[in-house]
Design a binder for these strands. Structure first.
Lengths: 250, 250
DNA sequence: TTCCCCGGTTGATCTGCATCAAGGCAGATC
DNA sequence: GATCTGCCTTGATGCAGATCAACCGGGGAA
C-alpha cells in the first residue's frame, strides 16, 4: 500500500515500470499484474510525429512514459484548438470506442506504454479496481477540461498566459524533487509559441507579446525563448485571475 | 436486456423510475436493484434555485429526472463561465470527492434523484457494472467538454450561437418521439440570453444580436423570444463551422 | 564561410466583440 | 388600468486581440 501511494505521488520514479503509473496503479495491489504485463508493449515517437489522426482506428490504450503529447481538434479551415496535454503518467484512449476523436501528436520525443484494447477491456471487466481507477482519472481530466473552459471563455490574453505558466510550473514541480524554496520556480517550456497559442485560443503573436509584457513587468524572467524563471509564484498567480487561495501549494 | 436498451435510448420513458436512467441503467440487469432502491431519494428545486455552491460539502450523487441544471464557474470579479449543462438522465457528483467544484443551479424547475454518496460508493465497489457505466458516461462528458473547448477557443460569435442551437436541437430531438421529417426542427430554448452567453463565452448583447442576424438571414425563425423554428437543419449546421458529415443524424 | 530555415519578436492596422446606454415588451402585482 | 420588473433588443463607441508584414538570431547543411 505504501508503494502504491508512492507511485501515485512520484510517478517518475517508476518510469521503468509504467504499469505502476497513476494510470493503472491500482493494479499494483492486485494479483492481475502479471496478466497486464503480458499484454503491454512500448512504442516511441519522434518530436513532431503524429501518433493518431482523428477518425483513425485506435486499437490500443496507452500511458505516457516519457515526453509530451497533445490532443488537438482542427476545423476545416485550419483553425486549431488543443484540447488535451499529456504528460508522463497520463492516460490516453477510450475503452469502448474504436476510433480516435482527436489528433494525437508527440511534441517532444515520446515513449508510450500501450495495451491492446481488447485484452485490456477484458482485464478491466475482471478487475474492478481498474475501472474505478480510470473513472477517478477521467473525472480529474474532466475537472481540468472545465478549468480550461473558464480560461478559454473568460480570461484575457495576459491571464491565459499566466495560467498556462502556472499549470506547467505546477505539473513540472510535481515531477521534480522537493519543492524549490522561497516560492521561485524554474522550468523549460515544453511548447512552442504556436502550441501555446493553440492551447490558449490565441494567436502566436499575441502569445509572444504577452510573454514580453510579463517579462517587462518582472513577473517572469526569460533565458533564451524557452527557459523560464518565476521569481515569485504568488505574483504569477495574481496574474491568472484565479482564486489565490487553495491553489499552488496543494 | 431489452428493457435496458430501451431505457438507454428513451430515458424519458422511465422518469418514474430514475434508477433505470442512463446514469445507472446497468443496474437494471443486476440483482442489486433493490439495494439501490433503498438508498435513493428525490429532491425538487425551483427555477433559479442554487442547488450547491462551489466548495460546499456534497454528500450525494444524483441523476436529473426532469428539468435542467447548469454547472458554472465564477471568477472573483464576477466573470462567469458555464462548464456543464445537465439535461434529464444526466449524472452529477463525484464518487471519491467530498466537495463540489462548481456552482450547480436549477435553470428550470427540477427534480433530481439522489443517492447518498457513502452507500452509493459501497454499492459501486460491490457492483463493477456501475463503475464501468459511470466511466463510459464520464468519457462522453469529457468528449463534450472538449468539443466545447473548440467552440470557446476558436469559433466566432455566429458559429457559437449556431452550435448551441444545434446542440439543443439534437438533445431535444433525442428526448422526443420519432424524428421530425424534412430536416426541420422546432424547440423551446431552455436558457435565457444571459445563460446562453455564459455557455458561449459571450455577452448577452452579442447573443441577442447574433440571434437577430441568424433570423434575418433565414437560418432560424423565432416566435417570441424562446420558441425556435429551424427550417433546415443542414443550413444551421453549415453555420456551426463543424464538419458537416457524421453530425446531426447519428 | 555562407546560406537558409525555423521559431520568435515587434510594428502597423483592422475588426469583432465588449461596453455603455437607451428603450421595448409581456407578465406579475397592486 | 397603472406601475413595475425581468428579459430582451438595438444603437453608439471603444478596445483587445487578430491580421498583415517586416525583421531577428541561432543552428544545420552545403
Amino acid at each position: 500500500m505504501a508503494i502504491h501511494q508512492d507511485s501515485h505521488l512520484v510517478p517518475h520514479d517508476c518510469v521503468d515500470c509504467p504499469i505502476r503509473h497513476r494510470a493503472v496503479c491500482a493494479l499494483c495491489e492486485s494479483d492481475e499484474l502479471s496478466k497486464l504485463e503480458q499484454i503491454k508493449y512500448y512504442r516511441s515517437y519522434q518530436a513532431g510525429q503524429t501518433i493518431i489522426w482523428s477518425g483513425d482506428r485506435m486499437d490500443f490504450v496507452a500511458s505516457v512514459v516519457t515526453g509530451i503529447a497533445t490532443l488537438t481538434q482542427t476545423m476545416e479551415d485550419g483553425r486549431r484548438q488543443m484540447v488535451g496535454l499529456l504528460l508522463p503518467s497520463d492516460f490516453v484512449g477510450r475503452p469502448g470506442r474504436s476510433t480516435a476523436a482527436y489528433d494525437v501528436t508527440a511534441t517532444t520525443d515520446l515513449v508510450m506504454c500501450c495495451f491492446r484494447k481488447k485484452p485490456f477491456e477484458e482485464l478491466m471487466s475482471a478487475t474492478p479496481h481498474i475501472a474505478q481507477r480510470l473513472l477517478e482519472m477521467t473525472l480529474d481530466e474532466l475537472d481540468a477540461a472545465r478549468e480550461w473552459m473558464l480560461l478559454l471563455g473568460r480570461k484575457t490574453a495576459r491571464e491565459k498566459i499566466a495560467s498556462l505558466l502556472a499549470i506547467i510550473a505546477r505539473r513540472d514541480a510535481s515531477l521534480k524533487s522537493p519543492r524549490s524554496n522561497k516560492g521561485s520556480v524554474i522550468f523549460d517550456l515544453p511548447l512552442t509559441r504556436e502550441e501555446m497559442a493553440d492551447y490558449l485560443g490565441l494567436t502566436l503573436e499575441t502569445v509572444s507579446r504577452q510573454m514580453s509584457a510579463l517579462k517587462k513587468d518582472g513577473v517572469i524572467e526569460l533565458e533564451g525563448k524557452r527557459h523560464v524563471i518565476v521569481p515569485s509564484i504568488n505574483s504569477l498567480m495574481e496574474e491568472t485571475g484565479d482564486d489565490t487561495d487553495g491553489g499552488f501549494l496543494v
